[in-house]
Design a protein around this nucleic acid. Sequence first.
DNA 1: CGGCTTTGACCCGCGC
DNA 2: GCGCGGGTCAAAGCCG
Length: 337
Amino acid sequence: MLLMDSARRAGCSPVCLDLSVGLSPSPPKMGAEMAAEPERPDPHAGGCRMASSMTDEQAKTLEARFTQVSEENRRLSEMIAYLYASPFARPSPPDGSDSTRASQAASPPTPPAVSRKRSRGSLEPPSNSGDANNGSGNAEAAHADESPLSDGFEGSCRRIKVRRVCTRIDPSDTTLTVKDGYQWRKYGQKVTRDNPSPRAYFRCAFAPSCPVKKKVQRSAEDSSMLVATYEGEHNHPCPTRAAELPGSAATRTGSVPCSISINASGPTITLDLTKNGAGGVRVLEAAESPDVKKLCQEIASTEFRTALVEEMASSLTRDSKFTDALAAAILKQLPDY
DNA sequence: CGGCTTTGACCCGCGC
DNA sequence: GCGCGGGTCAAAGCCG
């Protein structure tokens, strides 16, 4: 489709597009319009084969377009890198590591801020709660195989050791419970100084060795907002998977997380993932800095998101590597005739 | 009776 | 060194 579009712009009939030009050596069989195969060119395809009929001018046009797309991809990559490196996404790490955390998958991340050393019987050494997660590569791999849908969500948070999830609740509901699909055991409750409502402490009760902890507290500004702070990562599959994902049907009932923070190791931005009237994303909380706050709101604006999505979609669909991978994935899904 | 919650006490890091 | 405050423990109570 990408090449068909390019061919249209280059003045060539899309019907006679030869997929072997831009796609992998095993082109997909995606219907009559795209039936041309490199091994067995369909004489009934009704037109020319681009590879043989393309004029020098058309070739130059496509080459120029390829150069243009490559430049767009480069700019897009720079934009994404900039967004990752921006202060709200990742404050400059003290260890001098790459702000994009590209190397974090290979090296154990620093443990969460909570690194208290207690001499008496704690279930797990607090200092290695992160190591326990990262050391259980098998468990994580098994987890990753459990549910691609859920891992799409958790995978995006994998590099975040601490994350915050906001949930809308009934203001009259006094139970500090967030239905996130995991089983939790409450082990403490405390009234903190900066918030009149108590903070509840939970441990993951599904697996005894799971190091994940959760703190739940009503928002000081909005008592109908429950803020859950998760520390660590589960080393076991979620007992109930996709049903509790943000944006799912269960989420819209208001009993499960409807928003998520981008990063909690630094300034936190909490985005409401439920669509508002304009179909955009709303900033619930942001960092203290007005500049960061403004930037967050700009990024969360419908206009910015629309432009970004269009740019990404446009650039991706023009990327031959992306279309190769997409075509290969589609081929795998088609029945083998 | 076992599991979970509650809650006061305790631990410990951190700032002064 | 001291006090504050967040985090955790563990005994007591509750509940199915």
